[in-house]
Design a protein around this nucleic acid. Structure first.
Length: 590
DNA sequence: GCCGTTTTCGGCCCGACTGTTTTCAGTCG
């Protein structure tokens, strides 16, 4: 059962409570919605957390929801959920997936029109709307009927937030729109915020904050964006549009003197903001994008403004919190105690160890596009101290063992030349070696002896059971040349979920052998995922951030790997490739 | 139903926008 499916079940419970008695159950509704939100956006699988007995780690999951989830995973259903959803037409649940449909609207439509078939309810609503049957219902009208038809159509085309973007795509889109927004003279500052600023692995929509003294002019300019599909909403301080690629862009404005609180509000996350505001309430102050509302002596409410985020956080009584940490997983408490970690930064990185050149190694998988010389030149520009070449191992099915060895021996000669000629960027002889289904590495000892060390990784037979996969990985890591576990979970964002393995066991083994886990910065990997990075660090396991570049330009993707490390609370010491060359080599050679 | 730097009981974030309402409900972030 995926996180999305679990979240959907919890949302259905919240909706059922809302239909039965919204006032009576208002706090249950909030609790179930919050749990659904956090589970849906959790970067580790909730099912695995259940198996590892770590459901408590999920914010918003308390004793009650935890026991319901345990029942769900054990038996496939939950008695309490059946009780709550009893009497609520099942046909309304599919409608909740469509933006602009909430529990009330969905319920009134299926109840008034007698729609009972959950399989076809979306089609049924569409047909009836086309016949004009919705506009005549109480509380609905011509406009809302048209809006329903459009919402269904956009939902089918996966427009809006139904499909999440990988980070670089979101970056490009945000940059385009921000550049356009800045063309308005009324714009003083404009930044992309939301999950993009928090550097989440995937981004649902683009949020832009604008400092201006003339919000009406800014919004008028914004909604005239040339690649706009339609305006979703347009108010006096905020607006939302859908662009032709189907993505949603939200814009919020504040005057410059209260821009700091807008940055804070619009960066989120939602749970972070709720925690912050809850904490503030207990101090008798109230937070919003406008600033901090306090009672003054006359008994009247007064809003204090903040032009920077730092001042805003400080005024609540805590340190400024890096956006990557704002997920309500302990950062607020530490900010109050002035004990936030000093997160690793891009400028700390001194080398990239996972680089595929075009060296003719006749690999099992894909070859790089650029030469070792070109890649080294790029490393110089990035001010790296070292660079590790790590093509895929030569194909073992197409070559004899002797042939594999001779390819690697020749490659070693070339790399040795670099080693003696290059003193500014030191070269390291690595290779990305497959861990075969049986647990053996795809190269024999003689072939491995040509290398300084190996990045080992899974590239086949992903659907093994958990025990076998864990054993396979540990066997692969047992070879003394294996120093780095490459893209450890094997996930591909929006394509393939991670394979099943016992992470705790891998962590134990890596800790014992001083083996590093890779944070692969490739945008559809971002593997290890951030929550597992944090777990690795808590267990004293070190990490290496690599780009897995197959071309020169891809070496710029390092920032996305650093972002994952920061979201996993990594400081400089946790990341091995922040070390100088001599220290790094010392670790690498074991 | 969750949660804890005045709490294990008694609170629960804050505001914008839209449509169909003549004063607000529903949805969203």
């Amino acid at each position: 059962m995926t996180n999305k499916e679990v979240a959907k079940i919890l949302r259905n419970v919240a909706a059922s409570y809302a239909i039965k008695d919204e006032r009576k159950f208002r706090f249950q509704i909030m609790a179930y919605q919050r749990a659904a939100d956090t589970i849906e956006h959790q970067s580790s699988e909730i099912r695995e957390l259940y198996e590892e007995n770590k459901l408590d780690m999920v914010p918003g999951v308390g004793s009650s929801i935890k026991s319901h989830l345990q029942e769900l995973f054990k038996t496939g259903k939950v008695k309490h959920f059946d009780w709550v959803t009893k009497g609520v037409p099942k046909s309304l649940f599919p409608l909740l997936d469509i933006p602009t449909f909430g529990p009330k609207k969905a319920y009134r439509i299926v109840a008034e029109l007698g729609l009972k078939d959950p399989e076809n309810v979306i089609n049924d609503v569409e047909k009836l709307a086309k016949k004009g049957k919705i506009a005549s219902l109480p509380g609905f009208g011509e406009k809302s009927e048209k809006d329903i038809l459009r919402a269904i159509s956009e939902f089918r085309q996966k427009k809006g937030k139904t499909q999440r973007m990988v980070l670089p795509y979101a970056f490009d889109l945000a940059e385009k729109v921000v550049n356009y927004v800045k063309q308005s003279e009324a714009v003083i500052k404009a930044y992309p915020l939301g999950s993009l600023r928090r550097m989440m692995a995937t981004v649902g929509d683009i949020d832009i904050a604008v400092a201006t003294k003339n919000p009406i002019a800014v919004i008028k300019h914004f909604i005239a964006y040339p690649y706009k599909d339609r305006v979703i909403e347009e108010g006096s301080t905020t607006a939302s549009i859908l662009v032709s690629s189907g993505r949603q862009i939200d814009l919020m404005t504040q005057p410059p003197q209260s821009f700091g609180s807008l940055l804070q509000h619009f960066t989120g996350s939602k749970n972070h903001n709720i925690h912050l505001r809850d904490y503030a309430l207990k101090k008798g102050i109230s937070l919003s994008e406008y600033g901090i509302k306090k009672k003054v002596e006359s008994g009247k409410l007064k809003v204090e403004s903040f032009d920077t985020e730092e001042k805003f956080y400080n005024a609540i009584g805590m340190d400024w919190i890096p956006p990557e940490l704002r997920e309500d997983t302990g950062e607020v408490e530490l900010a109050i105690q002035h004990k936030l970690p000093n997160l690793v930064e891009l400028s700390d990185i001194k080398g990239d160890l996972h680089i595929h050149s075009d060296y003719p190694i006749e690999p099992s998988h894909d070859l790089g596009h650029d030469s070792m010389e070109q890649l080294l030149e790029k490393a110089r520009k990035l001010n790296y101290e070292y660079l590790g070449f790590s093509e895929h191992n030569p194909s073992v099915s197409k070559h004899t063992e002797e042939k594999v060895y001779s390819i690697l021996a020749r490659r070693k000669e070339k790399i040795e030349q670099f080693k003696s000629n290059n003193k500014d960027v030191r070269v390291i002889n690595l290779l990305e070696v497959d861990i075969l289904a049986c647990g053996h590495l795809s190269l024999n000892e003689k072939a491995l002896s040509t290398l300084d060390a190996a990045i080992v990784a899974i590239h086949s037979s992903f659907s093994m059971d958990k025990k076998k996969m864990t054993k396979r990985i540990i066997e692969g890591l047992s070879n003394s040349k294996a120093r780095i576990l490459g893209h450890p979970t094997g996930r591909l964002l929006n394509q393939r979920s991670s394979f099943d393995f016992d992470f705790d066991e891998i962590l134990d083994f890596c800790k014992k052998r001083s083996i590093a886990l890779e944070i692969n910065a490739w945008p559809t990997r971002l593997d290890l995922p951030d929550t597992m990075v944090r777990q690795a660090i808590q267990n004293g396991v070190k990490l290496i951030i690599n780009t897995d570049s197959h071309a020169v330009w891809q070496m710029n993707l390092m920032k996305f790997g650093v972002a994952v490390a920061r979201r996993g609370w990594a400081v400089k010491n946790d990341i091995l490739n922040t070390m100088h060359y001599n220290e790094f080599i010392k670790w690498l050679k074991g």
